[in-house]
Design a binder for these strands. Structure first.
Lengths: 343, 343
DNA sequence: CTGAAAGCGCTTACAG
DNA sequence: CTGAAAGCGCTTACAG
C-alpha cells in the first residue's frame, strides 16, 4: 500500500519548474504567452511528477464542471441506451463527461435525483421525462439554477424549452398507411394503457384510416397493460379468443410486436402469410423471426442532436427556442406482406 | 432571460441567518452541535434563498468528488447497460453519481478516456476492459492516483486487483453438458475469432466432451468474425454448404444464437425439432422465436456487487484482494430438446 | 456552543 | 513576459 501521498498539484509543478503557478496555469491552458524556455521547464516538471490538473478545482474557480447530466427512466431500455451514446459521443469531443440518472418513471425518484444533480452544478442537463405529471415543476427547478436544459421526448404542451421529440403521430400514420396499401383492412392497433406515446401512435392509426375514408372498428383497438412482450401476448390471446378477425397488427413498439409474434406463433398463425406484424421503434427488429418491419427511430441521432443544442446553450447562444421533430423511418423486412387474395 | 445571478452560497445563507458560515456548514452536515435556535434560523434562510450546497466546493476541500466512473466498451450493448444499472442503483444510495465512458474496444480510446477521468478525480473507478492488451498499464495509471478500482470481466492473469468475472468455462461446460445429455453428439461450437471470452467458452465445450469420453470433431468448431448475428448467419450457411452434420448449436452468445436461428430458419431447418440451439448470456433470449435456451449471466447483480466492493474500498477497507467468480445459470426454454430417435 | 481564519487546487485580474 | 495575491464555495482545526 502506498502512503497517503497527495497527487501533485500545480504548486508542486511550479516549484519544480522554478516558475510561478500563474505560469504553469498559462502553459497548461495556452491562454497567455510564455517564453519557450519556461514552457519547456514546465512540461518537464509535469512529466516528472506525472501531474494531471484537478478539474474540480478548476471548475470551482471557473464555475464550470465539465459535467452534463442525462436523466432517463432506465438505461437498460435500449432506446435510452442509444440516446445516451449519442449524447456521450458529442459531449466527449468537447471534454464533457456525462452522468446518467434513472428515474424508473417515478416522479419521486425524479425529484430525488434532481436534488442530487443540482448539488453537483452540472453545466447542462438533458431530460427524458415526458411521462412525468410534474415535469413543469422539474423544469422550473432547473431553471432556478440557470442550468441549460434540453428535453428529449418532451410532451407537446411544454413550451419555451429546447426540445426534441419523435413525430409519433405521423410515424404511426405512415406505418398504418403502409399496411392499408398492402390491402389490409382488419388492422389491430396494439397499444398500451395510460401511455401518452401510445395514444399519439393510436391517433396516427386513426388518421390513416380516416384518410382512406375507412371507418374504425373499435374492437380492433387493443391496449395492453405495459410495453412488455408478455402483455402484448395476453392481448393477442384475448383477441383471438374473442374471435376478432384481423390480418395485420400495428404494434406501438417493437417489444409489443415481439409479444404479438410469440402469441401468433404459439397459436400456429403464420407471419406474414396469415397476419402481418408491424413494429415501432426498431429496438428489436434485428432479432425476431421473421424480421420485423418497423418504424425506425434514430435514437442515437436524437442524442447527438440534443447534445449539440445543449452545447450551444452552454456556450451562451441565446437564440430562439429550438423544437425539433424527428421523423421515424419505415423499414420493411419480413413480417409484413400484401393480403392474400382469397380465391 | 435572467441576469447572470449567482446561485446562493453558504455565505449568503450565513448572512441572512445572522450566523457564521461554520454554523451553516454544521447544520447542513450535522457534524457538530448547534443550538436549536440557530438551526431554525439557518433552515429558514436556506428555504428562503433556495440554497443547495455546492458539491464541487465541498469536494475540493474534502478531496472527495462523490463521483465514480464506469468505463465500458459500449453502453448500447445490453450487457453493459445492465451492469451499469446495477452499479448506479447501489451508488445512488450512497449519494455517488456515476459517469459512463465508452471505449469501443479501442485501446487508444481507453487511454484517452482515462486521462479525462483522472482529471476529474473520481472517488472510484470500475473498469470493464478485459479485452485490452494494455490493461495493466491502465491499471497502474489509475493506481498512481490512488483511486480505488474494481475490474468487471477481468482477464484471469491480472492479479492484485479486486475483480469480478463470469465463469465462462464452467458455464459453457454446463451448457454443452446439457446438450450432450439430451443425446446430442454433433454439437456445433459457434464462437468468435480473437475473443478471449469465446475461447474460454470453447474450452468449456471441449471439457464437456472430454468428460463424457467423447472426441471432438474439429470441423464442428466454428469461429465467426464477430458477435454480430450476421456473422453467425454466415458461419452457419458455410457449415451447411460444407454438409457438416449437426443436431445442436452451442452459440457463445445470444447474439450469435440469433444469427444461427435466422440461418436455420432461412434454410427451412426446424428449431428445436431438427436442430437445438443454445445461447449464452441471456440478452436476447426473451425476444427470439423459439425462445432461446441459454446460460443467463446476472449482469445487474455483477454491477451491484462491483459497486459494493468499490464502496468498501472507498471507505478505506483494505482487507485482502477480492476475486469473485460469477456462475451463469442455465435457462431452458424452447430452442432445445432431446435428439429425435431415428426409427 | 459558536466564530474567525486558513486552506483545498485552481484561474485571473493587477502590477511591474 | 511573468509573478504575487485574491478568490471560487466549501470544511475544519483553533480559539474563546
Amino acid at each position: 500500500m502506498q502512503k497517503k501521498e497527495r497527487t501533485p498539484t500545480i504548486k508542486d509543478v511550479a516549484k519544480r519548474a522554478g516558475v510561478s503557478v500563474a505560469t504553469v496555469s498559462a502553459v497548461i491552458n495556452r491562454n497567455r504567452f510564455v517564453s519557450s524556455e519556461l514552457v519547456e521547464k514546465v512540461f518537464k516538471a509535469i512529466q516528472e511528477l506525472g501531474y494531471h490538473p484537478n478539474r474540480i478545482a478548476r471548475g470551482l474557480k471557473k464555475r464550470q464542471s465539465f459535467n452534463v447530466v442525462y436523466i432517463i427512466p432506465d438505461i437498460t431500455n435500449p432506446i435510452f441506451a442509444s440516446v445516451t451514446r449519442g449524447i456521450q459521443d458529442v459531449m466527449e469531443k468537447s471534454c464533457y463527461d456525462v452522468s446518467i440518472y434513472n428515474t424508473d418513471f417515478s416522479d419521486k425518484k425524479l425529484f430525488h435525483q434532481l436534488t442530487n444533480v443540482l448539488e453537483n452544478r452540472p453545466d447542462g442537463i438533458i431530460l427524458s421525462a415526458w411521462h412525468s405529471p410534474e415535469i413543469k415543476r422539474a423544469i422550473s427547478l432547473i431553471q432556478q439554477f440557470n442550468i441549460p436544459l434540453v428535453l428529449v421526448h418532451a410532451p407537446r404542451n411544454v413550451e419555451g424549452i429546447d426540445a426534441i421529440f419523435v413525430d409519433d403521430e405521423n410515424g404511426a400514420f405512415e406505418a398504418v398507411n403502409y399496411l392499408l396499401r398492402l390491402g389490409h383492412r382488419k388492422v389491430l392497433s396494439l397499444g398500451v394503457k395510460n401511455s401518452t406515446t401510445s395514444s399519439l401512435r393510436e391517433a396516427g392509426y386513426r388518421k390513416a384510416f380516416k384518410k382512406m375514408g375507412l371507418s374504425i372498428e373499435e374492437k380492433l383497438v387493443l391496449k395492453s397493460d405495459s410495453f412488455a412482450p408478455q402483455s402484448a401476448c395476453l392481448s393477442i390471446y384475448k383477441a383471438l379468443k374473442s374471435n376478432i378477425n384481423f390480418t395485420a397488427v400495428f404494434a406501438h413498439s417493437d417489444s409489443l410486436a415481439v409479444g404479438a409474434l410469440e402469441a401468433l406463433n404459439d397459436r400456429g398463425i403464420q407471419v406474414p402469410e396469415e397476419v402481418s406484424v408491424m413494429g415501432f421503434d426498431g429496438t428489436y427488429s434485428f432479432c425476431t423471426l421473421p424480421r420485423l418491419s418497423t418504424m425506425l427511430i434514430p435514437n442515437y441521432e436524437m442524442g447527438k442532436k440534443a447534445a449539440e443544442i445543449l452545447l450551444k446553450r452552454i456556450a451562451g447562444n441565446s437564440s430562439g427556442v429550438i423544437r425539433e421533430e424527428i421523423k421515424p423511418r419505415i423499414v420493411i423486412q419480413k413480417s409484413t406482406q400484401a393480403t392474400q387474395k382469397k380465391p
